[in-house]
Design a protein around this nucleic acid. Structure first.
Lengths: 231, 231
DNA sequence: AATGATATTAGACTGCGTCTAGTTAATCAC
DNA sequence: GTGATTAACTAGACGCAGTCTAATATCATT
């Protein structure tokens, strides 16, 4: 089923690939910020309007590969063994996705980020994507734990895990050639988070945080931070 | 020291406040996306160019209060008692900042986000700010732990904590009137993370993740690494 | 009054992203 | 074949954000 059954209407030519290739070349040549969409489409041999048939923004080209395999996490979450503790299931699903990234599969845009003069752009345009993944994780957790939507902990745990994964992926990319596979980087930083929250969700899980933070002993390291600035 | 000692040159008029007020009104009236900078500056009685003397982007108006008190976290981190474990120091610094937010101090732009038709804009424009805070936290941790910059764990821990704080703040805002103070929301979600990473950093802290993930047994689900938070 | 520093302004300009209308290339029904 | 339908592609205009340059206004200092 590589070629899906022929639909009516004019078939897509290879415009998307042509745009990606042209954009990649130009980003390397003159940098992301100094490349206009018109230049990209000219080199690709298509019209400017066609660009927006395939991408909603210039920065989307950087995330094309990511977007192609988005939904992967959702599949893994759905396939998780139901007898696992929720956070362990999340951990395994995340690691399963990370397993796909060997030493040489570091995303193109990330490794060349400095050359292309991206950085801010790449991060900013990535955020909505990561937020979507975090929302997926959070809803998965919340549903498994049968918690109300008002409980802030599932989404916070999901946000923390997602942020740690992104941070680890950044370190992995920056490790340059010689970096090993991605999964150990990810495992190293999400495991403590999952363990920490496993305790939280193992507990009875009261209504909300309004109960107060006093379930934690205030001492053990000395006086609380109250007089911190004064002393 | 409300009025700092007079500098040479033309003094600032109240343009900034006027712009903020006008923008707030217009965002409520017609929504963020349907308000142009020109409309804002017209209502404020200043020129369009003046807007960019005070804000670098339209969305910056939403974060004006945040930006005013940015740097607060850095102060708290610097004031942390040096004998505390690094992650406990981070936790207290974050909570110290959160303590400033009582039930009624929910940021304006956040509470009215839906009315204003923001949402994506607010989140996206917030990300660079949160990233800056996370970088602060990460560097603080890394320095205290005397780890090399190649170690991915401090920045990952910082990213996770920051993301959890942001998520908790979102829940706090969405809790509407009747929400208590912010600090318990934050405490609830950063404490497990800090505890989880305290174990990691308490350990010898090998070179990198390349050592492999095999320090964790693959199956058998009751007894993972508890023992930390017990009592 | 002259100077220097800074706030404010006017106006042009690039380029992103949106939109509308129209054209071209395919499949399907007959 | 012809015509209808559907979708990829194109052409061109538009609004607006954000940048830039140069000029002007208003203050303190001398």
């Amino acid at each position: 089923m590589t070629t899906r059954t022929a639909r009516p209407g004019r078939p897509r030519s290879s415009s998307r690939a042509a745009i990606e290739d042209a954009a990649g070349e130009l980003f390397l040549e003159r940098g992301f910020g100094h490349t206009t969409i018109e230049q990209i489409t000219q080199r690709a041999g298509v019209s400017r309007a066609t660009f927006f048939n395939y991408f909603t923004a210039k920065s989307d080209v950087l995330w094309s590969a990511f977007d192609d395999s988005a939904g992967r996490l959702g599949d893994e979450l759905a396939a998780v063994r139901p007898d696992l503790p929720p956070l362990e299931g999340v951990r395994r699903a995340v690691l399963a996705v990370a397993e796909d990234f060997g030493p040489e599969r570091a995303p193109w845009a990330a490794t060349e980020a400095e050359v292309m003069g991206i950085g801010e752009e790449l991060r900013i345009s990535g955020l909505p994507r990561f937020a979507a993944q975090a929302a997926l994780l959070g809803e998965h957790l919340r549903a498994l734990l049968a918690l109300p939507r008002s409980d802030s902990r599932p989404s916070a745990a999901a946000a923390a895990i997602t942020a740690a994964v992104v941070s680890a992926a950044g370190s992995w990319v920056r490790a340059g050639t010689g970096r090993g596979p991605l999964a150990p980087y990810v495992d190293e930083v999400i495991t403590p988070i999952c363990l920490g929250f496993a305790d939280v969700f193992g507990a009875p899980a009261e209504a909300g945080p309004r109960a107060g933070p006093d379930r934690r002993q205030e001492d053990g390291w000395g006086p609380t931070g109250r007089g911190r600035s004064g002393g």
